[in-house]
């Protein structure tokens, strides 16, 4: 087992990658459907499925060319089996399984969030297990103790909105585009951090759970009480981002102290947030710990992380029967 093809179609990005055990990611491509869905204000599942089907073959052929390998050079196949949009997942899974079947290659379904969890492993200086991981995206906010590959303990998670979801909803309130994270971060640069002070939810309670729904409401109420001009929007964005980042940082600090571990991994779309990265650098430095994250293109949905996790599972001998399935809702806890 040396080279694994990764296929990701869980939402609105078609992605293909080839991971090599010795050389790392040989090539990867991501085709984003954001433009297709923008006019509808969100992802239309049927259109997403149709588009995945059209893009998957050309993207695969292009990736093989860029990796400078032939189909014969692949030793295994991995695909995202969930969580995600059922129809979108089914396109990638059916293609991957059929391709592997026809070539008699081993094939595994991968949990999308396990992919994100290990995306920082693709960096030149990766973390080593055990570590604490903060998974933070549009669908998840979760602290996980990673003892080794395949052995996870969930320390805490969001009881309501994910951090990325709170970013998206607040962005919509301020009249910004989807996805909201980068838009808010950009607008916050012009903001006055002292004008508004939003709550840091659940920091006084013990444990590692999160809640972002109240923070989103606080931002909305503050916004409604003002003249809603451009400067106010920037000030709100600034205070909102600061509150999210502070909260995440505090819980990460608590998790590092409680576990006695000295490596923190952040992964998922929100891990691309620059302020979050800066704050976690400061916090971990004080604890004489280190923070790790993926390059921006591997923070969002990609197939390199799926190929990597697939490789790890295949090399451990994991095999699956022909009657495959995909799962729209698949709690990370079921992987543990």
């Amino acid at each position: 087992m040396k080279r694994v093809l990764g296929i990701e179609t869980s939402c609105d990005e078609t992605a293909i990658a080839v991971y090599d055990a010795e050389q790392g990611v040989l090539a990867h491509n991501i085709y984003s459907q954001i433009e297709l869905h923008r006019q509808y204000g969100g992802v239309v599942p049927e259109l997403a499925s149709r588009d995945h089907q059209q893009k998957i073959v050309p993207l695969l052929l292009q990736t093989l060319v860029e990796a400078n390998i032939n189909i014969d050079d692949l030793d295994g196949v991995a695909y995202t089996a969930g969580p995600g949009l059922i129809g979108a997942l089914l396109v990638g899974a059916t293609f991957a399984r059929s391709f592997a079947f026809a070539r008699d290659l081993p094939c595994v379904g991968v949990h999308h969030m396990e992919g994100h969890l290990f995306a920082p492993m693709l960096e030149p200086q990766p973390p080593t297990t055990p570590f604490v991981a903060l998974l933070v995206s549009g669908g998840h906010t979760m602290l996980v103790k990673v003892l080794e590959f395949g052995n996870y303990e969930i320390l805490g998670e969001s009881l309501d909105d994910a951090a990325g979801e709170a970013f998206d909803k607040t962005a919509r309130l301020l009249g910004l585009n989807y996805p909201g994270g980068p838009e808010i971060a950009h607008l916050a640069e012009q903001g006055d951090a002292t004008r508004f002070e939003f709550p840091r939810p659940m920091i006084k309670r013990p444990g590692f759970d999160f809640s972002f729904s109240g923070l989103k409401t606080a931002a909305m109420q503050a916004f409604m009480a003002t003249e809603q001009d451009q400067q106010t929007k920037a000030d709100i964005a600034c205070a909102f981002q600061l509150a999210v980042v502070d909260t995440l940082s505090l819980k990460c600090q608590r998790a590092l102290k409680a576990t006695g571990l000295s490596q923190l991994v952040i992964a998922g779309g929100v891990s691309a947030n620059q302020l979050l990265r800066q704050e976690l650098h400061k916090m971990t430095k004080k604890l004489q710990a280190e923070v790790f994250y993926a390059k921006p293109e591997f923070c969002t949905d990609n197939a390199a992380m799926i190929a990597y996790v697939g490789y790890q599972r295949l090399v451990r001998g994991q095999r699956e029967p022909l009657n495959f399935n995909v799962t729209a809702r698949w709690p990370m806890s079921e992987l543990v």
Binding site: G87, V91, A102
Partner: peptide, 19 residues
């Protein structure tokens, strides 16, 4: 069925690329 059509054409794509 939309889903059914995609299953058949995904299988066709998988076999056709592979072989």
């Amino acid at each position: 069925s939309f889903t059914g059509l995609r299953i058949a054409s995904s299988v066709a794509q998988g076999f056709a690329v592979a072989l």
